[in-house]
């Protein structure tokens, strides 16, 4: 065995790693519907600037799958026009820490919407977990990783992985690539996830939620006000009584001086308007959006517009993605 054999072996490994990175950047990022959407939304969010006199103001809605599934963007856009343009930027499975640091990066990199609406269930503000490597590429700045390590209770290896994922597109995307490949081998794999129930933890107590979310809302408010950006919170309904913590959210938002839009509780919408045990169906999203549009308009100081058929929006914006994701993914991806 010669040294040449080792050199060729290491070279082959390096070539494969390089090819994986190129594959992620050139193929996956350009051809995956989800990646195309996230990249475009990220780019658009980054390009937002405060409105000049007489031009529409910019509202950026960020959050997790509730943004994608519980909000009907065309409806909101129609109802808030012409005073406001509505943009969104969302990632599956993301939580408070993802978006606190995500907004920090977005604002630090120059994004200046007039208002930001963070859309989460109350419990998404309470838990400390993050999505992980995937969100690192889009949301985190390397200089924030040490602070994130303690905020999300990560260990050094997990933090180092985030740093790696911040620069390697393949590393951040690898679990998504694996899912697609596995599905091509086992076509009915998404159905397997029907077997898995959400982990049954100890039921949360109101006091726990309140003590966790109060400083977090205050931190979000502090962050956005530093850049002169107005902050709103949109809380979608959940079909699970006892999981909404509405009084706690109202109290925490009031303390932080944030407007919270939370029109429904669990029993206000029929089960038929939910697509699974978390998200609204397209009809539910339409109803929810129609309900919150005047509330948002009121909070933002816009005159609400009467209802317009959302298909007009799609006609005017043919590139705009249709809200909703395949049922298979909806099951895999909790908010």
């Amino acid at each position: 065995m010669s040294r040449r054999a080792i050199f060729v072996l290491l070279l082959l490994i390096a070539l494969l790693l390089g090819s994986a990175e190129l594959f992620a950047r050139l193929i996956v990022q350009r051809h995956s519907k989800v990646e195309v959407m996230v990249t475009r939304e990220h780019r658009e969010a980054l390009a937002l600037r405060p409105a000049a006199n007489g031009t529409p103001k910019q509202l950026l809605i960020v959050g997790n799958s509730f943004v994608g599934m519980d909000l009907d963007l065309p409806t909101l856009q129609q109802r808030l026009a012409p005073a406001w343009n509505v943009h969104r930027y969302w990632l599956y499975n993301t939580y408070y820490n993802d978006w606190y640091y995500g907004l920090k990066r977005l604002l630090a990199e120059g994004s200046r919407p007039d208002a930001i609406a963070v859309t989460f269930a109350t419990t998404s503000f309470q838990i400390s977990t993050i999505r992980g490597d995937y969100s690192s590429y889009y949301l985190f700045q390397p200089r924030d990783l040490l602070s994130l390590e303690s905020a999300a209770d990560l260990d050094n290896t997990e933090t180092a992985n985030l740093l790696f994922a911040r620069y390697s597109r393949f590393y951040g995307l690898r679990s998504e690539i694996r899912k697609v490949l596995l599905q091509s081998v086992l076509h009915d794999l998404p159905r397997m996830y029907n077997l898995f129930h959400p982990p049954s933890g100890t039921p949360l107590k109101g006091a726990t939620v309140s003590s966790a979310i109060t400083p977090r809302l205050a931190a979000l408010e502090q962050l956005t006000s530093r850049y002169g950006v107005r902050l709103l919170i949109i809380v979608p309904p959940l079909p699970r009584p006892g999981q909404e913590f509405q009084p706690e959210m109202r109290q925490a938002a009031a303390r932080a001086g944030i407007t919270v839009v939370m029109p429904y509780s669990s029993h206000d919408l029929p089960a038929s308007l939910y697509i699974d045990d978390v998200h609204l169906s397209p009809e539910g999203a339409l109803k929810f959006s129609e309900t919150i549009a005047p509330l948002l308009a009121d909070a933002l100081g816009a005159t609400p517009q009467p209802g317009v058929d959302a298909s007009d929006f799609h006609r005017d914006h043919p590139q705009a993605p249709v809200v909703g994701i395949p049922a298979a993914l909806a099951v895999q991806h909790r908010p």
Binding site: L9, L12, L16, L17, G132, F170, S175, I177, R178
Partner: peptide, 18 residues
């Protein structure tokens, strides 16, 4: 052995669970 190594790397990159 080189080919085997490449196969292992590909399997880890594409099917390694995260």
């Amino acid at each position: 052995q080189w080919a085997y190594a490449c196969g292992l790397v590909l399997a880890v990159l594409l099917f390694g669970a995260n």
